[in-house]
Structure formats: C-alpha cells, structure tokens
Design a protein around this nucleic acid. Structure first.
Lengths: 152, 152
DNA sequence: TGAACTGCGACAAAAATAGTCCTATACTGA
DNA sequence: TCAGTATAGGACTATTTTTGTCGCAGTTCA
C-alpha cells in the first residue's frame, strides 16, 4: 500500500547522490546507475524528467552529466516524487479530473483529500539535504518537527 | 503516486456506509455494491477479508449481511487499508524483509521510513466515524489536530 | 572525427490490480 | 424440508501500471 514507484526511488537516490557530491562538476547518469546498480537507461529517463522540471541542470557531451540546479536543502521529496510519478494521489479519483466515474457515489473522497494534503505536507517537509544528512548524523533530523498539522 | 487500490477504496466506502446505517441489522454486500455501482463479487471479497480480520461481523443466510464489529469511531482508516492492501509501505523495500535487493546501496530507505511512520500516523488518526461525519458537518473534523509529529 | 554524453519516442516484458466464474456452505422462512 | 438468499473462498482471466530495453538524433569536447 502507498508505495513509491521505483522510478521515484531512483530519482531520490540520484538527487541524494548529487547532494553528497557537490564537488564534482557534473555526474553522468551512468555513474550513478553504476553506484547503485540500477538500469542506466531507466535512470537516464528519470534524470531527464527531473531536468525538464528544473530540479537538475544537464550538460551534454563528453564529461557531461547532471548537477542540482538549487541547494539540496530547498528541494523537497515532494517535488521529486511529483515530477516523476505525477500529481496523482491517494484515492483513485481525485477531484482533478471530473469527480468520479462512479456517479455521486464517491463519498469517501473528501475525507481522504485531507489525508492527502497531510501526506503531501510530510513529503514537502523533508528535503534532499535532510535525506543526505541523515546517514552521518542519524537522529538529528527528527529533532525538528517533521510536520505540524493542526487545523490546516 | 501514493494511491490507494480500488479494493481499499471499496472497503472504506463500505465501512462508511455501515457506519451511516447503524439502524439496519445487517447489510448485504450486494446492497452496498448496488448503492455505489461497484462489482458485487469484488466487494464481497473485500468484506470477507475485513470480516476475517475482525472489523466486521458477518451473518449468512437470508436477510444476512455485515455489520461493524466495533464502534465506527474506533476503527481507523489505517486498519482498513492495512487489512486490504497489506502492510507494504512507501518504499519498495522496507526493512521488513531482507533490506534491499540492491546491496547496501539503498541509502534512501531510512529517511523514508520516518515519512512512512508519519503517513501511518495520519491514517491512524482518522476513523470511519470521521469520514462518515464529514459529509454532514464538513469542516468539523479539521478543527482537531489530524496528527502531531514532533520528534517522534 | 569519434567517443561519451543527454534527449526522446516506441516498444516489450513483467508485475500488480481488477474483475469474473464456479462451487460449497450457512441460515431463514414458508 | 425445501427453496431462496447470503457468505466463503479458490481458480482464473483481463486490464492496467510499472519496469526495463532499443534505437536514433543532437551535443560537446578533445
């Protein structure tokens, strides 16, 4: 339930990798794919999408590759996931497109929409920087409130 | 991204329906399926599973059907979803089974595990009763904190 | 110019979901 | 006690989503 696609996983891993190697001018998709043992071509597509959305800057040609276009601290997990998996959300039919295929029957949607926002909030509150930092200083991140949802 | 399966949707809808009809001694799967225009047999299976898990009580034979085994207020969305979609979570490989197929590469998992818990918290904090109530007195539910995640 | 890249579109393969069918069993009421 | 209505559940098929591959065009750099 509620699982991320592998593409989103790959995207997060790649951004984390880039966040941890700010020194390297640019890193190729292949470099990252090799490091994590994931299909290079797939990762390439993911990175291309992230570039298109503006989270990465690409650099074609020899010694080319990708780099973060912004500070890791300012890139949220939400942005990454949204860019890769799209805006779709919790319930099959979110009120983006025409309500529900199932007539006016979907009475469950509105309550879930709020849950939806809560989850988005959680995802927005965690940055690539947080994820990268986590490893070395585990436990530090939790000190600050991950998310605070009162009222809304 | 992060969307519920239809089965889970159906389950939530059914429980909500039952919560809204406490008068009826028991409601058949067909009744609910007809009301919402969903496949009866599929809903039947969902309800059977919810019964097995103990969220519903079933009653075979004529005029049979299902009823909540507990107060709607004490049944969380989390329980329902967990019963139907299983315990799987956010990231492909949660540290339930052996860490990751991808060697020690999955550095992304631990940070996401925390996100995972946050989401579970959100889901646990909303009850079937909340969802049923929502329609009539929309907006009331939001007044109470949906979830409060500080530190953890 | 050629090697090492990114950028895309079209597929193919695999896995998860959704939905159907069929049979067995339980209970109710006439 | 029999007929009708329900649940219980296994097996199977269909559909959709996800994952991964291939091939080719454009870029950059030495």
């Amino acid at each position: 339930m509620l699982r991320l696609t592998k593409k989103a996983d790959y995207g997060l891993m790649a951004l984390k990798y880039l966040a941890e190697h700010p020194d390297s001018v640019s890193v190729s998709a292949k470099d990252i794919a090799d490091t994590y043992g994931i299909p290079p071509q797939l990762l390439a597509k993911v990175l291309q999408r992230l570039t298109k959305v503006g989270l990465l800057r690409s650099h074609a040609g020899m010694n080319g590759g990708y780099e973060l276009s912004r500070a890791a601290r300012s890139i949220s997990a939400f942005e990454v996931i949204h860019a890769i998996d799209g805006p779709l959300f919790i319930t099959s039919c979110t009120k983006g497109s025409k309500s529900c295929e199932l007539e006016p029957s979907c009475t469950i949607k509105e309550p879930l929409a709020r849950v939806n926002e809560s989850i988005a909030g959680v995802l927005k509150s965690i940055s690539i920087h947080d994820m990268a930092e986590d490893e070395s200083t585990s436990g530090r991140v939790t000190e600050q409130p991950l998310v605070m949802l009162t009222g809304s």
